[in-house]
Amino acid sequence: MKSAAVVIVVFGALAWYVWDYNTSPTGGKAKAEASASAQASEDATHDPNIGDCVKVKDPQGDPLPTIVDCNSPQAEYKTADKLLGDDSHCDSKYAYGIQVHQSHQLDYTLCFTKV
């Protein structure tokens, strides 16, 4: 009888954990983890590496580079250099530059050439 009670308690606790993980009033831990993963994927599309081609939304205001395929007609610039430091500026050999300011990381400047 005692072992049946232990098995029931273990299965009940496991069922509660699964239910809470997926359906808590705040959307569940699974939804929060999926949302954080989706946000990380979205952020990665706006953080080009050297060699990545980008299109730039609002280049004269608050520029936001988005990585695109280099063979795409949307490709405007190719990332040529990443200069560390908040006071760095792109040389005249580059067509465009974006200064990136981050709250908890080192600021940098992205330098681009025309595609």
Score class of each variant (00 low, 15 high):
77 Y>I: 05
101 H>V: 14
79 T>P: 04
102 Q>R: 09
81 D>S: 01
96 Y>E: 08
64 L>Y: 06
51 G>Y: 04
78 K>N: 12
59 P>M: 07
44 A>I: 00
102 Q>V: 04
95 A>W: 11
95 A>K: 12
49 N>W: 01
67 I>A: 03
97 G>P: 01
94 Y>D: 01
91 D>E: 02
101 H>R: 15
77 Y>M: 03
97 G>V: 06
86 D>V: 10
67 I>F: 08
81 D>E: 02
95 A>P: 07
99 Q>H: 09
57 K>F: 12
40 A>K: 02
42 E>N: 08
54 V>C: 07
72 S>W: 00
86 D>E: 14
75 A>I: 04
74 Q>F: 12
56 V>N: 11
105 Q>Y: 12
85 G>E: 00
48 P>A: 00
87 D>R: 13
94 Y>C: 02
93 K>Y: 01
57 K>L: 11
88 S>Y: 05
104 H>P: 00
86 D>T: 15
42 E>V: 11
57 K>M: 11
89 H>S: 11
81 D>G: 03
103 S>P: 06
82 K>S: 00
76 E>V: 13
51 G>Q: 10
88 S>G: 04
77 Y>E: 05
43 D>I: 05
92 S>I: 15
42 E>S: 11
63 P>D: 13
96 Y>K: 11
62 D>G: 12
49 N>P: 04
96 Y>R: 10
94 Y>G: 04
88 S>P: 07
55 K>P: 06
50 I>D: 02
59 P>L: 12
97 G>T: 10
81 D>R: 03
83 L>C: 06
69 D>S: 15
94 Y>H: 11
44 A>N: 02
93 K>C: 04
103 S>I: 11
95 A>L: 07
85 G>W: 01
43 D>T: 08
87 D>I: 09
96 Y>H: 11
99 Q>D: 10
60 Q>V: 09
89 H>N: 13
72 S>P: 06
59 P>Y: 06
78 K>Y: 02
79 T>E: 05
52 D>E: 02
72 S>K: 04
100 V>Y: 00
82 K>A: 01
85 G>N: 03
44 A>W: 06
103 S>G: 05
102 Q>F: 01
67 I>T: 01
53 C>F: 00
101 H>M: 11
74 Q>L: 11
99 Q>V: 03
103 S>Y: 08
41 S>T: 03
72 S>G: 05
61 G>L: 12
57 K>G: 03
67 I>D: 01
105 Q>W: 14
101 H>P: 09
100 V>G: 01
48 P>E: 00
88 S>L: 08
47 D>N: 15
94 Y>T: 01
56 V>D: 10
105 Q>N: 15
62 D>M: 13
70 C>T: 01
74 Q>S: 14
43 D>N: 15
